[in-house]
């Protein structure tokens, strides 16, 4: 069963000397990308830990870049102080313009970085550790048929002895998992399809479109599954991840964006037909005493095309 054969624990790969040897033998180059927007609190720590453990001590990563959506805090200054390549997303592929969103940074990274494998790690992780990278790239180094490795985490909630409550966050459990169960049952074997940490082969990344907002992780999984099937995936347990907790209102917007991307994929994969245009206005309600109002937010899941459709990319990475 996929769940047993393609699910790892980071400790399976903690012998970094052996992993670096396997990487060298494979001839693969690995790039690490940290997408940022105002992450001055945690970015310095991520850089020093990844650089020291995975570049200076063990040469697992060949390249390391911070790709930023226009931070107004000291994210850039701190990144450069610790020797990371810091790029403003708008400066990459200027002919394509700039759109604000995490997906935009991930897409631009495919052009900017040179590695055969790109590992993405969010910048807001308080308990950062080298396992957040080696745990994800290792299955791709060891198994050529695996193209996409996703992180999952232990969630520190109260639980009875014996069974760990390993599962997704709130949006995963009440939106994405039910949708996967309905339309893509095999994908419900992914513990945390929305986690922001994953490693992917370039040959896959360059073929798929990138929603620039909330839907990027979901649509990636659906596109990779549609093209390669379940055997292209692996997932690694990285134990705990400590990060900012989002409000329920923010999660509502996130769920709305994900749902837009999901419905789009259902249609393009021929699994459903949309009879009329769906709204891109997210409507929430607010009560102030006895005054009630509707708060409307426009959330449009714009997409960047597959990199293979960009002329500059084909010039930089000729076929």
């Amino acid at each position: 069963m996929w769940l047993n054969t393609n699910t790892y624990h980071h400790s399976d790969f903690e012998d970094l000397e052996a992993l670096c040897k396997a990487k060298e033998e494979s001839g693969l180059k690995i790039s690490l990308c940290i997408p940022t927007l105002n992450e001055e609190k945690t970015i310095g720590k991520e850089i020093v830990i990844f650089k020291s453990a995975l570049m200076d001590r063990f040469p697992l990563i060949d390249e390391f870049a911070v790709i930023d959506s226009g931070s107004t805090d000291r994210t850039g200054e701190i990144s450069e102080a610790y020797g990371a390549d810091f790029h403003y997303s708008g400066d990459i592929l200027p002919s394509q313009g700039f759109k604000r969103g995490k997906g935009e940074n991930l897409w631009k990274a495919v052009y900017e970085l040179k590695g055969d494998i790109i590992c993405y790690v969010d910048a807001d992780i308080a308990n950062i550790h080298p396992r957040f990278v080696y745990g994800l790239v290792a299955p791709l180094i060891h198994r050529p048929e695996v193209h996409y490795c996703k992180a999952f985490y232990e969630r520190p909630l109260a639980f009875s002895q014996g069974i760990r409550p390993t599962g997704g966050g709130r949006v995963t459990e009440i939106l994405v998992r039910p949708l996967f169960s309905l339309f893509y049952p095999e994908l419900s074997q992914l513990f945390q399809p929305l986690s922001g940490e994953y490693a992917v082969r370039r040959e896959v990344l360059e073929k798929i479109p990138f929603p620039i907002g909330y839907g990027v992780e979901t649509s990636h999984i659906l596109d990779v599954y549609h093209e390669y099937g379940m055997s292209a995936f692996a997932q690694t347990d990285l134990d705990q991840r400590v990060h900012r907790n989002q409000s329920t209102a923010a999660l509502g917007k996130m769920a709305f964006g994900i749902l837009q991307s999901f419905l789009g994929r259902l249609e393009s994969h021929g699994k459903a037909t949309q009879h009329e245009a769906i709204s891109d206005i997210y409507r929430a309600l607010q009560a102030n005493g006895t005054e009630y109002e509707e708060i409307s937010t426009q959330i449009t899941e714009e997409e960047r095309p597959p990199m293979l459709e960009i002329a500059e990319y084909l010039k930089k990475f000729p076929r």
Binding site: K45, I47, V48, I49, K51, S52, A53, D56, R57, Y82, G83, N127, I128, H129
Partner: peptide
């Protein structure tokens, strides 16, 4: 020029 070697240990031990 090798400050991250030290700082990484300080972060990991400090946590």
């Amino acid at each position: 020029s090798h400050k991250e070697l030290y700082l990484a240990d300080a972060v990991m031990l400090g946590e």
